[in-house]
Amino acid sequence: MSESIAERTDDIVDEFDMFEDWMDKYDHIISLGKELPLIDEQYKVEDNLIKGCQSRVWLHADYDGEKVQFTADSDAIITKGIIALMIRALSDQTPQAIVDADLSFVDQIGLKEHLSPTRANGLVSMIKQMKFYALAFQSKQA
């Protein structure tokens, strides 16, 4: 997983281009959600919980001085599938690359409504939180 964020998100867009209808697309998201490596139980705590009215998201970030690793979980499988895409895009990248990341691929693959604040599913806050972590790690570095 050494490609740039832009390369990874282009791959995701290509992958979603293959789906002909909504069922195929959601089947894929659901299977990504099921495959998402679970967050270590010790990190599934209140401090890492991003509350949403609909579904809950736990997010944990590790930084080795060079790259950031994200792990996350949700109680809803579709939310988890979208988290898996976000992690695929942003994990194992430098803080600077995460801060600068363009995440318009979510729109391109037709999942924009999941990032609408009215969904209150914790995803918008999760993306914000991923960038905050990166910013924090960046300032630690500087």
Binding site: Y26, I30, C53, S55, A76, I78, T79, H114
Partner: peptide, 22 residues
């Protein structure tokens, strides 16, 4: 065994408007 958000999301794909959540 299933989450209300997942059900509501997929029903919406079928044009069925329900409320999910608390």
């Amino acid at each position: 065994g299933l989450h209300h958000y997942d059900i509501g999301t997929l029903l919406d794909q079928l044009g069925i408007a329900v409320r999910t959540g608390h």
